[in-house]
Design a protein around this nucleic acid. Sequence first.
DNA 1: AACAAGATTCTCT
DNA 2: GAGAATCTTGTTA
Length: 216
Amino acid sequence: MTSHDAGPDAIRAVLSGDPRDVAPHLLGAVLSHHSPEGTVAIRVTEVEAYLGPRDSAQPDPGSHTYGGRTARNAPMFGPAGHLYVYFTYGMHYCSNIVCGPDGVASGLLLRAGEVVAGYALAQSRRPASRSRTDLASGPARLASALGLTTADSGRDALAEPFRLELPSAPAAESAVANGPRVGVAGEGGSDSYPWRYWLAGDPTVSRYKAARSRAV
DNA sequence: AACAAGATTCTCT
DNA sequence: GAGAATCTTGTTA
């Protein structure tokens, strides 16, 4: 079976698992967004897993869902394959692919990728980008390159105007590196969850930056 | 009703 | 390597 032939149902079934298991299936996947301006497609090279609320089977202090369901994070509780997009720092959008069965909050933050189609459009959306590898080498950069905003939160990534193609086989274990999640406070030092996954050696992977402990 | 912090990026040193 | 820009969200009063 090839990813080209895998329909939405098959893809959604894969995404309905634990995000830590889904990660190797999403690394190398291509997410496309079709808009009036054109189409941009990004090959995912880095993700981070986020789990559920304090009182769930998989509590995750670093997740937006830790405090329970809210209007903002509601998509994370929904069916797999939908987008959860949030606005942060007053200027950036970040996007997740929702994972797990309907009703269970979990997802994978799209942290970085390689633009594989719509390069000119992506560049126009990110004028500050100086190189092709910088276009989507960060969660907010990736969302910007794809043209995602909170208006897209909750939408199905497996239906128009989106498209998601998984690799024909999950990334080999030897090709996937993992480490602590980026910018997540409250899971300091040795307690950090190594739930950031990336394709080892890929030039588009974001540069690691430790969480800022506290403003001076 | 008001406040502190944030799953970041960019620019300058 | 450090600081600014900017505003939504969730928490506290």
